[in-house]
Write a protein that binds this DNA or RNA. Structure first.
Lengths: 185, 185
DNA sequence: TTTTCATGAGACAATAGTGTCTCATTTGAA
DNA sequence: TTCAAATGAGACACTATTGTCTCATGAAAA
């Protein structure tokens, strides 16, 4: 029972950081501590430096994405349905994880490995879609991944701007992806 | 002949800023001045503050985009060809203008107006594509704009990563856009 | 009650960036 | 050559942020 009950301070800081950094990626540690309702000293007790905090946020984000995806595709067996569902469940996470796209993790081998793994999983998924005859096999997988990622981004922004609901954005994104890269008829 | 020959210092600073800020958006004014080959004091003689410099860069970027687009579509009369060519000529500008996407211009009315105008022009272009029967009229124009912008972004990144040439990325982007949002057959 | 531990408040030093200013030098034009 | 404008170098004050440290307090566990 090492981690059964959290001190709540650490979680509060992480939540405050996610909230604040998405509004202003250069928010200070003072602001974060303040929103978390803890002193700045306490923040430094849990996270030795700003870099340490950001790294924890990135790891948290990776885990949250893995969790939400794994949970959503439990009973699905076709690549097609998996790709469709992932698109839908990841859209709402943009508000929470978006700011991480602006951070540089080039010096962190641990995180780079995790990012590489996620990219590889996406790659495998896209190869699966090709096998199922949904995607044009003559299109480079690297381009397919780019489009998949950026359409997801477009969907998130569309929702953020109030142009569509998550459900609508999800449908539009999927339709655009499939028609855009699908097997020529 | 007020502006016939530039002092070159101002231009050198702007060029250095474009180069450096795309590598590191938080590069200091010292670094920028240094790369431009001028003293920090001189930089402040041309740009009263960092904000002032960034704003000039944004205005420059808008003008450069307008120029390259206007120049490319001079003799074209179909919306379809225009949309296709714009995609191609804007890809290389990503390396130069990309960092501006990370800046916040919410407090600058002048720039906000320019951005709004560019978005409106894109909107008009997409409506034109609908009229020419190239795009599905049942798809919201706001979504079409999102996809157009993000596919452009995907193409730039694809080139930046060395996955494709500009020409290949341009073809893939156009194909993906047209098939993705085109009229159902 | 006593003890232990997390915490808040705040002082502190170090660092970095910014904007201003001065002065000596250079450059180019008259 | 002479003069005026542009420049480089650098000092200066100001601000913000960060990370460390100490100390008193309050709450929970023993």
């Amino acid at each position: 029972m090492k981690n059964s009950i959290r001190p709540s301070s650490e979680d509060a800081i992480i939540e405050a950081a996610f909230t604040l950094l998405n509004k202003d990626p250069s928010a200070s540690l003072s602001q974060i501590a303040s929103l978390a309702g803890v002193g700045r000293a306490t923040l430094h007790r849990y996270f030795s430096s700003r870099e340490d905090l950001i790294k924890t946020l990135a790891q948290t984000a990776i885990r949250e994405m893995d969790d939400v995806v794994e949970n959503a595709i439990q009973d699905i067996d076709s690549y097609t349905e998996v790709a469709k569902i992932i698109l839908k469940v990841l859209i709402p996470l943009g508000d929470r994880h978006g700011f991480l796209a602006l951070e540089a993790f080039e010096h962190d081998e641990e995180l780079k490995t995790e990012f590489k793994r996620q990219k590889q999983e996406t790659s495998d998924l896209m190869e699966g879609l090709k096998e199922e005859g949904l995607l044009d096999i003559s299109i480079p997988t690297s381009w397919i991944i780019q489009v998949y990622d950026h359409i997801l981004f477009a969907a998130w922004e569309s929702v953020k701007n109030g142009e569509t609901t998550v459900s609508q954005a999800s449908d539009l994104a999927w339709r655009t992806f499939i028609n855009g890269l699908g097997k020529p008829t």
